[in-house]
C-alpha cells in the first residue's frame, strides 16, 4: 500500500497488555447451555492476550451456523457473512489488508457442505487465515439434520432410517487440498485447544484446525468415546513434532508404517525403533494423510495435534509482491499515460 491511499493501516509495535475481559464484547452469548462452543470461545479469549496482539488488528469472519455467531462475542472487528462464503470474504480482506490477523470460524455444514469449494481453494492458495472448523457432525442451527461429517447410518430428522453417504474426514480434506498447516483438537481440553490455536496463529499461510465440538442438544456425546477424561489416554494420539507417535497410559501403543500406510501397533510387538517419528514439516503430505485415516470416526484411537506445518508461499504476499515489482519496474501508474496507451490521433 502506498502513502497516497486513504485507508488506515494498522498500528504496529508492541501491543498494550490485555486480559480476557478486553476481548469480550458486551453482547450476551447465546449458545445453548452446555454447548461446546463456549469452551472454544474461552480458549480464544484466553489465548489472544497471551499472543500480544492488538484488538483493532484482529478480525473474526464467519458464515452461518451456531459457531458462526462467534464474531459477535469478540471485542474485535468482525463480520458475520453468509452461509459457506466466509473463506471467500476473508480471502479478499486478507489480500487487501495483510496487516490484519484474520480468524475464520464455521461449522462442518458451513465449511464442508455449502462452502466446501471456498475452503479448499483458500487452503490451496495458502492465504494467511486462521481457519477453525468447529465439527459437531450435525446441523445444529436448523435443529438436527445429518451433516457432511455425520457418520453413515446416522438417524436424524432428515435421515429417519439412517444417513446413506460416507462422511468427510475434515483433516483428510484439508491435507488433500495440500493445506500447509493442518491440526485437530477438541472442546474438552482447553489447554490443547489453546496450544493448537497458538500454532495456527503463528503459521504463515492458511492454517486449518478441526475442533471436535459437542452439540449437547442434537448430537450429544458424539466424541465422548475419545474425549472423556477416562478415555483420552487410550483413544487420543497426541502428535508432537520430532517425537515418536505413542499413546496409552504407559505409552504402550504406537503408530508404525505397515503395508504402505500407517497402523496402530503394540510397541512390545514391533519394538521401539519401529515406531514412527512424527515430522509435521514434510513437504509430502502422504504420511500426514495416512495418519488422518487411522480412525474412521471418533470411536477408535484418533490423532490430535498438528498433522502438518510446512512452509509454502503465502498467497496474499505473492500477489502484493507482483504489484510491487511491476510498480517498481514501470513506475507508479499514470492515468493520463494509460489513456494514451493505444494509438491516438490529434484533431
Amino acid at each position: 500500500m502506498t502513502d497516497t491511499l486513504n485507508i488506515a493501516t494498522s498500528n504496529v509495535g508492541e501491543a498494550p497488555e490485555t486480559s480476557r475481559s478486553d476481548w469480550q464484547s458486551d453482547q450476551e452469548v447465546r449458545w445453548c447451555p452446555g454447548c461446546g462452543d463456549y469452551s472454544v470461545l474461552t480458549a480464544i479469549q484466553l489465548l489472544l492476550p497471551e499472543l500480544g496482539v492488538r484488538r483493532e488488528n484482529t478480525v473474526f469472519i464467519s458464515g452461518i451456523g451456531c459457531a458462526a455467531r462467534f464474531p459477535y462475542y469478540m471485542d474485535t472487528y468482525g463480520v458475520h457473512t453468509i452461509h459457506g462464503r466466509s473463506p471467500a470474504f476473508a480471502t479478499g480482506l486478507a489480500m487487501a489488508r495483510p496487516d490484519l490477523d484474520i480468524w475464520v470460524i464455521g461449522g462442518d455444514g458451513d465449511m464442508l457442505s455449502i462452502g466446501g469449494n471456498h475452503l479448499i481453494h483458500a487452503l490451496r492458495r495458502n492465504i494467511n487465515l486462521n481457519i477453525l472448523l468447529i465439527n459437531n457432525q450435525i446441523y445444529g442451527l436448523t435443529k438436527g439434520q445429518y451433516s457432511p461429517t455425520s457418520e453413515k447410518g446416522k438417524v436424524t430428522k432428515s435421515s429417519p432410517v439412517g444417513a446413506t453417504p460416507r462422511p468427510f474426514n475434515p483433516v483428510s480434506v484439508a491435507l488433500g487440498a495440500e493445506a500447509s498447516f493442518v491440526a485437530r483438537t477438541h472442546d474438552m481440553d482447553r489447554r490443547h485447544m489453546q496450544e493448537v490455536f497458538r500454532r495456527a496463529y503463528q503459521h504463515d499461510g492458511a492454517a486449518f484446525v478441526e475442533v471436535y465440538q459437542n452439540c449437547n442438544v442434537f448430537n450429544d456425546g458424539a466424541f465422548g468415546e475419545i474425549t472423556k477424561k477416562a478415555a483420552r489416554d487410550d483413544m487420543l494420539i497426541d502428535l508432537h513434532h520430532g517425537e515418536q507417535i505413542r499413546f496409552g497410559s504407559e505409552s504402550e501403543k504406537g503408530v508404525a508404517r505397515l503395508d504402505g500406510g500407517v497402523q496402530i501397533v503394540d510397541v512390545a510387538d514391533v519394538g521401539e525403533e519401529a515406531i514412527l517419528v512424527h515430522d509435521e514439516t514434510k513437504p509430502d503430505p502422504s504420511t500426514a494423510f495416512s495418519l488422518s485415516r487411522l480412525a474412521e470416526g471418533p470411536h477408535s484411537p484418533t490423532p490430535i495435534g498438528v498433522f502438518r506445518a510446512c512452509n509454502r508461499d503465502e498467497y496474499g504476499r505473492a500477489v502484493a509482491e507482483q504489484i510491487a515489482e511491476v510498480t517498481a519496474s514501470r513506475g507508479k501508474g499514470d492515468l493520463a499515460s494509460l489513456l494514451r496507451s493505444q494509438p491516438t490521433w490529434e484533431v
Partner: peptide, 30 residues
C-alpha cells in the same frame, strides 16, 4: 495489466467467491 496503479486482480474459484472477495476487500478499505 494495471498493477502499477495498485490494482489487485483476483481470479476466484467461482462467481460467488469473486463477489465475496470483492466485498471483503471493500470492508478492508479498497
Amino acid at each position: 495489466k494495471h498493477k502499477s496503479f495498485g490494482v489487485t486482480t483476483f481470479q476466484a474459484e467461482d462467481e460467488i467467491a469473486a463477489v465475496g472477495s470483492a466485498l471483503g476487500a471493500s470492508y478492508g478499505g479498497y
